[in-house]
Nucleic acid binder design. Structure first.
Length: 886
DNA sequence: GTGGTCACG
DNA sequence: ACGTACGTGACCACT
């Protein structure tokens, strides 16, 4: 049987994939959709064809001869979007990693290379397949050259396949006559102008009848539809030029080497690593893992099998200069502990017959006091686990701990996972098996019992990777100027947050229940009214069903807004409510069910036996450096509406205590005043109490006392807008004014505070130049968006570049305050404790007799957290519940 | 799992 | 002409 060669039109397939696959990005911010689509198509065709040779052809950037002809005629070609452009070199890397040959040559188009190699291969007696998205290539089809054109059909990629006869069946013309057809019809995708006024039908008729353009022109007088006749007469030169453009050069000057194209095993380790980095999880299954390098490492992992051995290892650990550990658990059950003491010493100690969890963790706790550097992942979680087994770490020892997750977060806060597989790849140069690859969906408990070997590898890596990557992480932090941020802000904060989470906040379950019951009554009434008014029962919570009732059945005009149908957002409904009590009922229903499900019922589920709710603060989530709060989220407890605000009455202090709440006054604007160095705004903050009124007075040139409420409100909105990275559209939406007016406000604002404009501009410039935005304390926020060719994405990037330094610096400041408040409370031997942080606000539980001391600490440490050119001020209150205290 | 909606700073 | 304010998390419906 003759040999098979597959030739791929790289340029056209990746283009097609780019526009056909929904936008994907990996956690590094690299766009990956085109690569994904390309590889999927390639894999599918490879499986069907099983070729002996494979080459992918690309265009080079330099303009080719054929396109120069066209460019001369009609300006330049439109460039590739940046999101696609950045994917091409990565795709080539992947192909090369798979041992797949690529070809490209300056001055030659991919088409020409494909045509040339296809014809030469055919001459050698091979069966040739050309994979392309471009119908222009149909001209190459013969008995032995098959053109495959992929098309998406209901989400599945199919291909249309063409040999000579298939072309004739489909187009009524021979493959070579496809050139004539294209030259007449034109092809905008391929930049072939064609003859204006001639489409597919006319072109086909002409070529079927006359065979080619020249012959048709020779008989131009007899051409039937006058339109076609005139078009051809008038634009004959265009047709000839188009023909030259459409003709693929099948005799290029190119040295093609079939040996280089010979296809071997494409599922290589290198390709695996790349695919993993691209995060094409479902493609990984094609690759057989197990790098030889990993074997060597894994052989050093030792599963401990008896008490004596365990004891010995723990003694040795106590003498280490640095170590890494990981506790493996499922729910509350401790399964094992792994320890890495040196590159060659990794031990997995299972909680089996010979040791108990308490003993094991107790011994671990003793080791902490002796080792100067201890690497962990998710330190706060490990501390909770240790604490649950009675192990607490002394204050003096806290400085020894390093958390690899937090280090990796500082280096790139945009990732959504800092799991040890990621750290291994990124910072230890290792590709290691993921949990799913080792165990599938099995529970860890089951694995420990049934697949000890696999568990040893999993467990071993969990500390080995930390041991190996921690020095690399620290080096990167130093290089990027963030080591100080890491060691003096983020790591100490771990301990403060740990304390806050352990403390929890007391909630009056009884009061929360009655609150929920009252809501339920009112919700029931509204439900009845709504069904009655609608004339039917339906799910009010379903935006889809509600949209049908409101806009179809009742004929209200709201207009479409979302992809899936009508928008029923509060914004839309509020416009209709004054006219229509029914809509007002819906809005009230929404509000009440939100309160009941998320807060009344939602929070109840988290009240522990200690009557308290223990949230988890996440330190590695936000792009800007803020914290987030989950399970439950205690950073979004209602306050703006009175009814919702009432919920705060259920947050109460324990007996003998009060709640103290302190929040920064306009911290972000103050940060902006400082960072921009705008004398006018700095002066304003040093003098004035009411910054919005003052802004209004200065921007609108009105005496301070004559500023109207409306003017103050507008000024306030502008101040907010500035912090968000202002746009006239955003401001106009917020104030319900025209864009033009909004633009005027902004302009006047910048005239009044010129340094602010300079500062914001410099934020964008710096971010563009360096690729990241930076806070006062050196925290970075990478900005891949700024490279986008898409206007919307780039504008977004510019706003983010302005916002991130401000929001991030404010986040840094309150983190410093938290650490200092926490440390002072403890240093001064007070019982009072920090409970919650809500971005610019701290909530404490203060022992009644310590109240004065606590308030003093809060003022000093919050206001003194950073030395700015404007004062940092706080508002502070105490109360019997959170409602009173805030 | 995704999108719509809405709670907060 | 493009179509947006910045940063989060929870709940619900629906695929």
């Amino acid at each position: 049987m003759s040999e098979k060669i597959l030739l791929v039109d790289g340029h056209s397939i990746i283009n097609r994939a780019f526009y056909g696959v929904t936008d994907l990005t990996n956690s590094e911010g690299l766009h990956t959709n085109a690569i994904y689509g390309f590889l999927n198509t390639l894999f599918k065709v490879l499986e069907e064809e099983k070729p002996d040779y494979l080459t992918v052809a690309f265009d080079v950037k330099a303009p080719t001869f054929r396109h120069q002809m066209y460019d001369a005629y009609k300006g330049t070609r439109k460039p590739m979007p940046a999101e696609l452009h950045e994917q091409v070199p990565v795709l080539k890397d992947v192909l090369h990693a798979m041992g797949i040959a690529t070809m490209e040559k300056a001055g030659l188009e991919a088409d020409d290379l494909l045509g040339t190699v296809a014809k030469r291969s055919e001459a050698l007696g091979m069966e040739v397949t050309v994979l392309s998205g471009d119908r222009d290539l149909l001209q190459l089809a013969t008995e032995h050259i098959r053109i495959r054109l992929p098309k998406t059909k209901g989400g599945v990629t199919e291909t249309e396949n063409y040999n000579t006869q298939d072309v004739i069946d489909r187009y009524q013309v021979t493959p070579l006559q496809i050139i004539e057809l294209k030259a007449l019809m034109g092809d905008s995708a391929d930049n072939i102008p064609g003859v204006p006024g001639i489409g597919e039908k006319t072109a086909t008729n002409l070529i079927v009848q006359y065979g080619n353009i020249e012959n048709a022109y020779a008989h131009v007088e007899e051409i039937k539809p006058n339109r076609a006749k005139n078009a051809l007469q008038e634009h004959y030169d265009m047709a000839v030029m188009s023909k030259a453009l459409a003709t693929i050069n099948i005799d290029c000057d190119y040295d093609y080497d079939w040996d280089m194209a010979k296809l071997g095993n494409i599922y290589t380790q290198e390709a695996y690593a790349l695919i993993k980095r691209l995060e094409f999880k479902n493609m990984l299954s094609r690759f057989q893992v197990d790098a030889p390098a990993n074997d060597k490492i894994e052989k050093t992992f030792r599963m401990i099998e008896d008490f004596g051995e365990a004891d010995q290892v723990l003694n040795k650990a106590a003498a280490a200069l640095r170590l890494a550990f990981a506790i493996h658990r499922e729910g509350d059950e401790i399964l094992s502990l792994s320890l890495t003491l040196s590159e060659k010493e990794t031990y997995v100690i299972p909680v089996a017959g010979f040791v108990t969890a308490d003993w094991l963790l107790g011994r671990l706790g003793e080791i902490f006091a002796k080792v100067p550097e201890i690497a962990t992942l998710k330190l706060k979680e490990e501390l909770k686990c240790l604490a649950a087994h009675g192990v607490n770490v002394d204050k003096e020892q806290q400085g020894a701990f390093l958390d690899a997750e937090i280090a990796a977060y500082l280096l790139n806060p945009l990732k959504d996972s800092y799991a040890y597989e990621e750290l291994a790849r990124e910072y230890a140069g290792l590709t290691i098996p993921s949990y799913a690859e080792l165990f599938g969906k099995d529970k860890l408990t089951k694995v420990l019992e049934e697949k000890t070997g696999a568990f040893r590898i999993y467990g071993g890596y969990s500390s080995y990777v930390l041991y190996q990557s921690m020095p690399v992480l620290l080096a990167h932090l130093q290089e990027t100027g963030m080591e100080d941020l890491y060691r003096t802000m983020e790591m100490p904060l771990v301990w403060t947050l740990f304390g806050m989470e352990q403390e929890g906040v007391r909630v009056d379950a009884q009061a929360l229940k009655s609150y929920g019951d009252e809501l339920a009554v009112r919700i029931g009434e509204l439900e009845t009214r709504i069904y009655k008014e609608a004339g039917e029962t339906f799910n009010i919570n379903s935006p889809k069903q509600l949209g049908v009732i409101l806009f179809d059945k009742m004929g209200l005009k709201g207009g479409k807004k979302t992809k899936t149908g009508y928008s029923t957002s509060a914004e839309v409904l509020e416009k209709l409510a004054p006219e229509c009590p029914f809509v007002a009922d819906i809005l009230e229903y929404r509000q009440l069910t939100k309160l009941k499900s998320t807060y009344a019922d939602g929070l109840t589920a988290y009240i522990g036996p200690d009557e308290r709710i223990h949230t988890t603060f996440q330190q590695t989530i936000t792009a800007t450096g803020r914290l987030s709060s989950v399970e439950p989220n205690l950073q979004n407890i209602p306050i703006r509406m009175e009814l919702g605000r009432q919920i705060r009455k259920v947050f109460i202090p324990k007996d003998g205590c009060v709640l103290v709440d302190a929040d920064y006054s306009q911290i972000e604007l103050r940060v902006l005043a400082h960072m921009s160095g705008d004398e006018n705004l700095i002066h304003a903050y040093r003098e004035a109490q009411d910054i919005h009124r003052l802004t209004a007075s200065q921007v609108f040139h009105i005496p301070f006392d004559e500023v109207t409420d409306l003017q103050r409100r507008n000024a306030k909105a502008v101040n907010f807008g500035i912090v968000y990275g202002i746009s006239s559209f955003g401001l106009s939406q917020d104030l319900s004014i025209s864009r033009k007016e909004a633009q005027e406000y902004i302009q006047k604002y910048f005239e009044t505070y010129p340094k602010i404009k300079e500062f914001l501009d410099s934020c964008v410039t710096e971010a563009k130049e360096k690729g990241y935005a930076r806070t006062m304390f050196g925290r970075r926020r990478p900005m891949p968006e700024l490279k986008s060719s898409n206007f919307m994405q780039r504008s977004f990037g510019e706003r983010v570049a302005m916002n991130a330094p401000i929001q991030g610096t404010a986040a840094d400041i309150i983190k410093i305050a938290m650490i200092r408040v926490d440390q002072r409370l403890k240093a001064e031997g007070l019982k009072s404790r920090l409970l919650l942080q809500v971005h610019d606000e701290l909530l404490l539980e203060a022992s009644t007799e310590e109240l004065d001391a606590v308030e003093q600490i809060l003022s000093e440490e919050m206001e003194g957290a950073a030395e700015l050119s404007v004062p940092l001020e706080i508002d502070m209150k105490q109360g019997e519940n959170w409602y009173e205290a805030h």
